[in-house]
């Protein structure tokens, strides 16, 4: 069997398939089907310094080849995550990389969360500066180079944990944002968060989401994600975790060719809970069939016209 391991920011992943934040809870919801140790990593539900109630429902709408969501970061707070979930995740993961996805309204929120996580045994921190569904903070940090740089710098000073910054595609130049966070000490970037979207019920003229707008994910956004990863790959040297609409092993290979060292999957598991395992199996066969010893051989190997 092929060696699927990848290394990102000094952290070893047993395989390149990471569950995306928001789609997998804190790893507790799918264990009836398979153990979390099958996964390369889990990016846990986006957490804030204080618990958050989340947005008024409806919070989801189906779209062609995707979904719109506006959960609004409902979570039990960083302290709750560390106290109730982290030890179990580490124990059951048996080497599966546990990533804390952190969001905030103010710089102080991000710093306080990072300080709590610094003294925990979480493996990595993923900075969420791209959530489209909260009124304060969230994507407002991620849409300017100055904002993205400021959060990265503040958190970098608060923690030595390997730091991933998750970028929003809802910007003019994602490559410029990538360069800004790299310059402030990000160890990796995850690309992309959801695209801002909207659906309207034509019968009652109400938006389907109570928040009016929400984040679009699923296969519909895959080409946008591939483009963003490729643009970032050409702009920065730090490793990229590619995400956005991946549902098959072929998608994973495509994302890696564009420049991703690992991938995240989210929406795909709502359709098929086994999708992450199928991607891992497919990648292994692809490597065997093509004589690939390490997935690092294909990262960024697209041949542009």
């Amino acid at each position: 069997m092929a060696d699927l391991s990848v290394k990102i920011a000094g952290v070893d992943f047993k395989n390149p398939v990471i569950m995306a934040s928001g789609a997998y809870g804190n790893g507790e919801c799918y264990t009836d089907l398979y153990p979390i140790s099958e996964l390369g990593g889990i990016s846990c539900k986006g957490m804030t310094i204080e618990p958050k109630m989340g947005n008024i429902p409806p919070r989801i709408a189906e779209t062609p080849s995707g979904i719109l969501n506006s959960v609004g970061l409902q979570n039990i707070g960083v302290r709750g995550f560390v106290d109730y979930y982290l030890d179990t995740l580490k124990e059951e993961g048996k080497g599966t990389v546990i990533i804390a996805n952190v969001a905030g309204a103010t710089l102080d929120d991000y710093i306080a969360a990072a300080e709590i996580l610094e003294s925990s045994n979480v493996d990595m921190i993923e900075l969420n500066i791209s959530c489209p569904n909260v009124k304060a903070g969230g994507a407002t940090w991620g849409v300017t180079t100055e904002g993205a740089a400021a959060v990265t710098k503040a958190v970098r000073n608060a923690t030595k944990k390997p730091l991933i910054v998750k970028l929003t595609p809802n910007v003019t130049s994602i490559a410029d944002i990538a360069k800004a966070v790299e310059a402030e000490g990000a160890d990796s970037i995850s690309v992309i968060n959801t695209l801002l979207g909207m659906r309207i019920d034509i019968r009652n003229r109400r938006p389907i989401l109570h928040n009016n707008v929400g984040g679009l994910s699923g296969p519909a956004i895959f080409p946008v994600a591939v483009r963003c990863v490729w643009q970032c790959f050409n702009a920065v040297k730090i490793p990229i975790i590619g995400m956005g609409g991946i549902s098959t092993w072929e998608d994973a290979v495509e994302m890696m060719l564009a420049g991703a060292s690992a991938i995240q999957m989210g929406t795909a598991i709502f359709t098929d809970p086994y999708a992450p395992l199928k991607v891992t199996e497919g990648l292994a066969k692809y490597m065997d069939d093509n004589g690939i010893k390490s997935l690092s051989e294909i990262v960024g190997q697209v041949k542009p016209w």
């Binding site: 997998y24 809870g25 919801c29 429902p57 409806p58 919070r59 598991i269 809970p273």
Partner: peptide
Amino acid sequence: EQRMGCGVGACVVCSCMTVRNGKEYY
């Protein structure tokens, strides 16, 4: 009933407001 995503508790989209021990939460 509520518009639902994963069905297993992971995605937190199918919320309804509840009260337990005097505290409101989704």
